[in-house]
Structure formats: structure tokens, C-alpha cells
Design a protein around this nucleic acid. Structure first.
Lengths: 152, 152
DNA sequence: GCAGAACTGTTCGATGTAAAACAAAATCTC
DNA sequence: GAGATTTTGTTTTACATCGAACAGTTCTGC
């Protein structure tokens, strides 16, 4: 008697249910949204934590380089950096070698907030992956990396 | 001498590089964008293929149910269905049992296009996963599903 | 050297999505 | 049954992202 469609579980996607593409999208939306909603009192940093982590790992890189790393357009990036800059998290400094480029750095406040949010992200990651073995998680990471490589 | 930052490879995200959250987002953006850009002559169906596949698997379900399945808000969904309807791919029919709800069906044209695009998606999937073993892909699917379950 | 091409950050206009508010309909509670 | 609550689809408003166009800078090929 469970062929009724009115149960509480999410409707499956039929044929698409067996594809990485479909699940990838769904998982990403849910993960991203959940993380952002749990940290509503930290300004825009939670939303842009990935990007900030790239800046932290590669201080002084030009905008376009960082935008490309996180698959955002240069034009979107301008506004985002304006916001992060207004919140005192990052700093644009003109390059000495190429007068077109701005190098991007984290401010000390930015550094501190990113450090704290990365801990938060690790906790969130643990919740997301509860019930999974370490090998399973490692396999997931490897698969995602290969997808990224193949799609780049 | 490879500690210069000016190589062509994507900048890594430092600490975040080891997290599923970061890679998930990147992979999803690249996968989605790539698929959509390869099918610019099919209207809005490529972008909304997942959603259409849900409709195909569960014809006649109310809008809100399908929106929830693909993690879209009800309000966004209105516009999307307007577009898909204008392209003749889906049809809204008022329910006989509940006069608030519209049931959603694929039209014959919609059915045909979705069938064709699903083949396209399988090809794309194969490109995305080239160099991966079947077990690896299966593991990726399983990990994503567990993420979705944990996040729902 | 120099003219054309390519690159960088930016602005502007268009599109996609979400949240809040709403009306109509169903459901619940007593 | 009547009134309150919830649900459904919708409209409105705000915001995030993108592509195209632009000006300033650098690079390339000759």
C-alpha cells in the first residue's frame, strides 16, 4: 500500500536519480544553504568562505585569478570584494609589477574570522558525513576532484 | 622552481581543499554550466532537466511537491513552470481533489525532449567520469546520496 | 618602436532565485 | 458546524550572478 505519492520523503528523479549530475546539484544546494543559515550573524563570510580560503592560501593574487579558482565571473567578483572589503575582511592593493592588477590580502580580522569559520565548517562537514566511513569520505573527495579535473 | 603562483592550474583552496563542501560546490557549478552550454538550442529544458525528470517520474504531482524535490522555492517555481509551459513542455492541470493544487504533467513534446536530453546527459556523465572505475562512480553516487539524506 | 591583440578591473543591463505578503482553499479544533 | 490554522499557488521586492561593453595596461609580432 506504499505506492501512494503522498509520503513525506523527497520525490525521486526517476532516471536522473542514477546520475552524478543530479545528486551533485541537490547535495550542493542543501549543503551550502544549511551552512549559510546556521551562521547568519557573520556577515557575508560564510557564503564566501571558500573564496576567502583561497585568498588565505594564496595572499596577494590578482582578483581574476581567485575568481577563476572558485568559478565566479570577474564582474561578480568586483561586488563581492567590495562587500568583503567593506566588512574589513580583505584588502585590495595595487600590484607593483602590473598596474592593471589588484592583489588581494586578508586583513588580520579577516584572517581571524576565516580561521574560526573553518572550524565551524569542519563541524558542519562532520554532521554532513555522519554514518560514513573514512574510506567512503575519502572516495567521495577523490571522485569530486576527478570531476573537477575532467570539467576544467 | 615550481613555487611560483603563475602556472595555469586552478588555485587550490588551502585548508578548504580537503572538504567535501568546497569541492561539491566547484564540481556542481562546472558540471551544470558545461551541460547547459553544450545545449544552447533546446530552450530552458537543459537547465531544468532534473526537475523535468522528476515530473516524468511522478506525473500529476502538485507544484510545491516537485519544487521541494529539487530544492527550489515555490515562488521561483512559478516562473520556471510558466517558461516550460510557454515552450510547450509541461502542462498544469487543476486537481479534482484539491482545488488549491495544480498537477504537473509533461506534454508529449516534453516527454520526447526529456527522453532525448537524458541520453545527452548520459553522454555528458560519461565524459565527466572518464578515467574513473565503475566502483569509484558507484561510491561517488552513494556518498552524494548519504549527504542528501543527512542534509534533508 | 609601434600597431594590434590580449588582459584586468569595472560598470551596466538582464536573468534567476529567494523571502515576505497575500488570497483562496483545505484542514483542524473545539 | 464556526473560527483558527495550515497549505497552495501567486505577486512583489530584493539580491546574486552573468555577459557585454569599456578604459587603462601589458604583451606580441613585426
Amino acid at each position: 500500500m506504499s505506492d501512494r505519492e503522498d509520503s513525506q520523503v523527497r520525490l525521486d528523479a526517476g532516471e536522473a536519480e542514477e546520475t552524478l549530475g543530479y545528486k551533485l546539484r541537490l547535495a550542493q544546494i542543501l549543503a551550502f544553504r544549511g551552512f549559510e543559515q546556521r551562521l547568519t550573524d557573520c556577515g557575508r563570510a560564510p557564503r564566501y568562505l571558500g573564496l576567502l580560503s583561497v585568498i588565505r592560501a594564496h595572499p596577494g593574487q590578482p582578483q581574476s585569478r581567485i575568481a577563476e579558482a572558485v568559478a565566479l565571473s570577474r564582474s561578480s567578483f568586483v561586488t563581492i570584494l567590495d562587500q568583503l572589503s567593506a566588512e574589513g575582511l580583505i584588502e585590495r592593493r595595487p600590484s607593483d609589477f602590473d598596474r592593471r592588477v589588484n592583489g588581494i590580502w586578508l586583513t588580520p580580522q579577516g584572517e581571524a574570522l576565516v580561521a574560526r569559520l573553518m572550524e565551524e565548517a569542519q563541524r558542519y562537514e562532520a554532521e554532513m558525513t555522519r554514518g560514513m566511513s573514512d574510506e567512503e569520505i575519502a572516495c567521495g573527495l577523490r571522485v569530486l576532484q576527478k570531476l573537477i579535473d575532467n570539467l576544467s
